[in-house]
């Protein structure tokens, strides 16, 4: 059973993630957001369940589909939207776009575009935490496709050898772009059991059942903070939209007829609303009020970002090196003796 304040945080995170993603999807065709966007609609559950469990000083990294993780960790919505819009005030200086998000003020250390890329980086964060004697956790968000990258095995191995405080959160949404699991991983293999065989504690759950995910991870994270070493958690979930972009793509036929509709019945947002009404005494009015509050904030965030100025063009050449902050370092502008 979730603590009272945690249930509200979870419901708020669910509304926030869904609302922001729908807001982006609705505005995306206008062409103002000119970068690839990988939507989290349908996959809000795990991030929302973790929202009250991740401390600000826990350090998270993620992948190309990171909006939910970023918002679940408490990242600034405005800074993220400005980044996606390519405006001044973007969290990554308008250089990263949707696939490169960061908000260090809440411990979101970065998401990157290459599948598997941040897995060792999260393990390295865990190494730094361990060296400093901290009880914070490093949290690595990854998908079922990243399991197929060699770096995943290297990283899990090292986390196991060194007993690092790293929590691997694998959201298995069954597809990598248009490729289903079938040609990618042997039939009948359980990802979390395979990882368990590598020597780290592994658990699994239904990522669209937010209440159960919260309950499972509440126990796992409490145990991890007492220095129990790394944990791998696999959650089943499903993306509703196309791999990249705001549209439905059921017509392409790479997913079985009716599969998406079936998963929509298990929508994490609606399911958690039902859970709160039936088990936590929430009224429909209370849900509606919370939802409206979150959506009003989101509307203000979009209004803000659309009014943000464009970044100055010289920003393209800044900060290639750390000590060069504020100046250009291209060879053509380098001081010449000629």
């Amino acid at each position: 059973m979730a603590e009272g304040s945690d249930t509200e945080k979870i419901m708020r995170a669910l509304y926030l993630i869904r609302g922001v993603e729908e807001g982006i999807a609705q505005r995306y065709p206008a062409g103002k957001m000119r970068c690839p966007v990988h939507f989290s609609i349908g996959q809000e559950g795990v991030s929302a369940a973790l929202a009250p469990l991740m401390r600000r000083d826990d350090l998270a990294v993620s992948s190309h589909r990171a909006h939910a993780h970023y918002m679940g960790k408490g990242g600034s919505v405005r800074a993220m939207l400005a980044e996606i819009y390519g405006r001044a005030g973007g969290c990554s200086g308008a250089r990263g776009g949707s696939m490169h998000l960061i908000d260090e003020s809440v411990g979101f250390k970065g998401s990157t575009a290459i599948v598997g890329n941040t897995i060792p980086i999260g393990v390295g964060l865990g190494l730094a935490l361990q060296q400093k004697g901290s009880d914070s956790l490093a949290i690595v968000f990854l998908g079922d496709g990243a399991i197929e990258e060699g770096v995943f095995y290297e990283s899990v191995n090292f986390a196991a050898v060194q007993r690092l405080p790293v929590l691997f959160i694998c959201e298995n949404n069954l597809y990598s772009v248009y490729s289903p699991l079938g040609p990618r991983q042997p039939a009948g293999r359980s990802i979390y059991k395979m990882v368990e065989a590598m020597g780290i504690k592994s658990v699994a759950g239904d990522g669209n059942d937010v209440a159960a995910t919260y309950k499972l991870m509440h126990a796992v994270i409490a145990e991890m903070r007492s220095g129990q070493g790394p944990v791998f958690a696999e959650f089943s979930t499903y993306r509703w939209l196309e791999h990249c972009g705001p549209a439905d793509d059921d017509h392409l036929g790479y997913r079985a007829q009716g599969e998406c509709a079936e998963w929509k019945k298990r929508a994490p947002v609606a399911r958690y609303e039902k859970y709160l009404r039936e088990n936590e005494g929430w009224s429909a009015a209370r849900l509606e009020a919370l939802r409206n509050e979150v959506l009003a904030d989101i509307a203000r965030d979009f209004a803000w970002v659309e009014a943000q100025p464009l970044p100055p063009r010289p920003d393209a050449y800044r900060e290639v090196y750390a000590e060069d902050a504020g100046k250009s370092v291209g060879q053509n502008t380098m001081e010449s003796a000629a």
Partner: peptide, 22 residues
């Protein structure tokens, strides 16, 4: 410390440790 034969991950772990303050 000695390390596993995992050049790619160990480089990423170095990046992670560096952005984590080491």
């Amino acid at each position: 410390f000695d390390m596993p034969l995992s050049e790619n991950a160990m480089t990423g772990i170095g990046v992670g440790a560096a952005i984590g303050g080491l």
